[in-house]
C-alpha cells in the first residue's frame, strides 16, 4: 500500500489524472491523441510562462473540433518582446485563468491521451515547469513530436529543424491563426493526419510505437 500513501499527498485532480493511466489502449483507432500547442512569454522554460494553451483531439484519425480546449493564463511574468508575435496583451479582454487552474483544466482534458505537438519537447517542458511550481511530478503521457515524425516519413534522414510554417507549406495547408495556441494546434493536427496517412502507406499494420521510435 506504499504507492497508495504516496498518492495521497497529491490533490484530487492529479490523482484522477494519474488513475487514467491504469487503462491501456492497444487499438490504434481507439487511441485518443490530444494535439496541443502553448504560447509562451519566451523560450526559456525556467523563467518564461505559458500565455495560452490550445488543444484539439484526434481519434481514429479524425479531428474532433468539439473535443478541444482553449485557455488563457493570467500573467505576472510578462515579456513585452513576445507580444508582437502572439498579439496577446497582458490584460486583454479574454477570460483568463490562474496558471494553476489552466493546468488543472489541461490535465482533466488530456487524461491518458497521447500528446502530439510540434517540437513537443518545449511545450512539454513548459507544462512540466508549471506542474513543478504546483509541487507536482511531470506529465505521464506518451508524446509524439510532429517535427520528428516528419523526418521519419522522409526517405532521407536529416536533423534539420522544420518549422510549422515549413511543414504547412510542404503539405499545402493554408495557414491562419498562426501564433495562437489553438490555431497552431489545429494546423499541427492537420499535419499529424497527413503524416499518419504517409506512415500508414509505409506500414500496413501500424502500431502506436511506430509513431514514437524514430531512430
Amino acid at each position: 500500500m506504499k504507492w497508495f500513501k504516496r498518492d495521497l499527498k497529491y490533490p484530487k485532480f492529479y490523482r484522477h489524472y494519474k488513475a487514467a493511466f491504469n487503462h491501456k489502449i492497444n487499438d490504434l483507432d481507439a487511441v485518443r491523441f490530444v494535439v496541443f500547442d502553448t504560447e509562451t512569454t519566451g523560450l526559456d522554460p525556467k523563467s518564461d510562462r505559458i500565455i495560452s494553451i490550445g488543444t484539439v483531439a484526434v481519434q481514429a484519425f479524425e479531428i474532433n473540433v468539439y473535443d478541444s480546449l482553449e485557455c488563457y493564463v493570467k500573467q505576472e511574468h510578462f515579456n513585452k518582446d513576445t507580444v508582437q508575435i502572439h498579439g496577446l496583451l497582458k490584460a486583454g479582454n479574454i477570460t483568463k485563468l490562474e496558471e494553476k487552474d489552466a493546468i488543472i483544466a489541461f490535465l482533466a482534458h488530456i487524461k491518458n491521451s497521447v500528446l502530439v505537438a510540434h517540437h513537443a519537447a518545449f511545450d512539454i517542458a513548459m507544462v512540466n515547469e508549471a506542474l513543478k511550481r504546483m509541487g507536482l511530478p511531470k506529465l505521464k503521457n506518451k508524446v509524439i513530436d510532429t517535427g520528428k515524425l516528419y523526418q521519419k516519413t522522409k526517405y532521407i534522414k536529416d536533423h534539420k529543424h522544420y518549422s510549422l510554417d515549413e511543414l504547412c507549406n510542404t503539405f499545402n495547408i493554408r495557414m491562419h491563426d498562426r501564433h495562437t495556441a489553438s490555431g497552431d494546434a489545429f494546423l499541427t493536427a492537420l499535419i499529424f493526419l497527413k503524416l499518419s496517412s504517409l506512415l500508414k502507406k509505409k506500414s500496413k499494420n501500424l502500431k502506436l510505437k511506430d509513431f514514437m521510435h524514430w531512430f
Binding site: G54, V56, V65, S68, E70, C71, Y72, I94, T95, H176, D177, T180, S182, G183, A185, F186
Partner: peptide
C-alpha cells in the same frame, strides 16, 4: 469560452 478553431470553421 473562446473557440478559435470553431470560429475559423465558421
Amino acid at each position: 469560452m473562446t473557440n478559435t478553431i470553431a470560429e475559423r470553421i465558421l
